[in-house]
Write a protein that binds this DNA or RNA. Structure first.
Lengths: 339, 339
DNA sequence: CTGAAAGCGCTAACAA
DNA sequence: TTGTTAGCGCTTTCAG
């Protein structure tokens, strides 16, 4: 429990001198400097970050709120954020909202009380007026103390953002299925009220229409972006007896669940059923069959978000990241079958 | 940027009264209370956590250091820690050491300056004297300010710990392979100098010997506990032309890499090669074939560690968690083949 | 180059 | 029940 005073006494100087040595932003005699450093090491002294934060404007801390830390999607984003934070010697505070919008607001408030330099909100946002209003208000308050809110995904309120063209990605991957000759394509969607869910479904529908196939509402099964949700949705799809030859899962976790459901049902992928996902989380390539999916530059999202969070200039910047289809082995061509 | 004084002025009371309303640990007239609460809401006031931390003993924050946030192994532990922290309304600060011991020490120091109530060190520890000495010193310092260090894995220094019988788990899974008739069993191990690596390898060797098969050093290939490391090690194993019928991967990530290497080499699992892992991360059951592995109660480790971190009573407590073999589809019986 | 002193925003005695 | 006041440990003018 040693304070700056203890170090000062040990080194035979004033506490102001110790402070100057530690912060290195002021001239100090080399010899004095040595003595102070020796005292610091001897006592294992580290400055009280809170006392410091009371004075200095920046705490060097940034907060990030994710839906679920153990979901590879967020884990990869988080790793990107961490990377940039480490490079800049910033501390990262992680919070799990478990997909509860109310908790996200509470966390922002908590982070605000911690005087973080910025908060990164990673993940889809529920499209609910009350939530959006509260979020906007928090963004405003953060701004009023020189801090920032950075959104990842869709820019639902006025704030810095790293965005993704979810609709386009969904369009492209659906087109891939269409091009392979599939017309009865099921879609396991995400949680309702999430902008991500809506955009991906929109891209799917648009692709269908652009190919002249009328979207069949009974082919879109609600999911929740989790592995178990994907499994359950796929079981439901199979039991319903709906005839489809391909499934577009709303995200990779959902695809993983669907893949296992298919396997458990004795259906072979892609021979009996083609399957695609969205996200390209690392495990996708190691699945059997390796998953054809939409690549989201997850790490890049995190890095870009962290850079926005750390750069002091204000003004609602938007970084737009591209998605691309990555073809692997989970789609079979129906043309060949027909030929 | 409103302070407690602004709220006090707005409500027409003193700052002490505001403090009492907010902390709710002192009698305040209901009518006054209402006025204060109204002012708080109107101003969007949240107390400055740092000013508070300067006075109150506990900051309600706990820090956790993991090797890699995006590794499912640590992500699951982290989720457990988060869960308990949420239940107790504690803030969690997450740090990534990227497997660098030096960085772990730096992080503990940083967390100490943040006056966290405890730091949880999740993951294997390098068995290096300098590191261990530094770690022990940090544990002592943490203790001296009423904080705690909680270890997950092996109890390498005097501190609270959640331990795991790695040797036993490795022994059991190797026995499983032996029982299926395999005698030429390769082992892809972990990073050198990690206690976890050593213990798992020891369990493997012991199992072999208990079955009367002499361990062949050329069958243990160094790995690094990552997917790519597992892939590379497996390729090396295949190229070396060593005859083995089964592989015990040091952890599941390694097994995933090995599985892909095997697939890419055209070898079928388990028909051509049996494969087992260690950890039972969630994805293990979704692999093809589903992976036979050693189950580690990852979430439970996190929860137990968090509980130790939050419980004030001191005194180097050790929570011992059990591992168990979970049989899935990646091991083939060689007896049948011979029969 | 170094020291003395003010004060960051809050809580906790101590008074009233 | 409420207000006044003394710090928590640090940084930062302002003197010297």
């Amino acid at each position: 429990v040693s304070t700056i005073r203890d170090v000062a006494r040990e080194a035979g100087v004033s506490n102001a001198t110790v402070s100057r040595v530690l912060n290195g932003n002021y001239p100090v005699a080399p010899e004095t400097r040595e003595r102070v450093l020796a005292a610091v090491k001897a006592l294992g002294y580290v400055a009280n970050a809170h006392a410091r934060a009371l004075i200095v404007r920046s705490t060097g801390t940034i907060g990030v709120i994710v839906h679920d830390i153990a979901d590879p999607y967020f884990a990869e984003i988080l790793r990107g954020v961490q990377q940039v934070c480490d490079e800049h010697k910033r501390l990262l505070v992680t919070c799990n909202s478990m997909r509860e919008p109310g908790r996200e607001i509470s966390y922002i408030e908590m982070l605000r009380s911690q005087k973080v330099d910025a908060v990164v909100l990673a993940g889809g946002y529920v499209e609910d007026d009350e939530f959006l209003l509260a979020l906007d208000e928090e963004a405003r308050r953060l701004r009023s103390v020189g801090a920032r809110l950075v959104l990842c995904g869709d820019r639902v309120v006025r704030a810095d953002a790293v965005t993704l063209d979810n609709a386009n990605g969904a369009n492209l991957i659906t087109l891939e299925l269409l091009r392979a000759g599939h017309t009865r394509i099921a879609h396991i969607s995400g949680p309702t009220h999430f902008s991500t869910t809506r955009h991906r479904q929109a891209g799917y529908t648009a692709a269908l229409e652009s190919y002249g196939v009328t979207p069949d509402p009974s082919l879109v099964i609600p999911g929740d972006f989790t592995r178990d949700g994907g499994y359950a949705a796929c079981v439901k799809l199979l039991e319903s007896g709906l005839d489809c030859t391909a499934i577009f899962a709303g995200n990779d976790q959902t695809a993983i669940g669907a893949l296992s459901a298919l396997r458990d049902a004795g259906a072979s992928v892609p021979a009996d059923m083609s399957l695609v996902g969205f996200g390209d989380i690392p495990i996708s390539r190691d699945l059997s069959p390796a998953l054809t999916t939409v690549r989201i530059p997850l790490g890049e999202i995190g890095r870009a978000a962290a850079k926005l969070a750390l750069s002091p200039e204000d003004g609602e910047r938007v970084v737009r990241l591209a998605t691309e289809v990555v073809i692997r082995d989970s789609v079979a061509s129906r043309r060949k079958v027909l030929a």
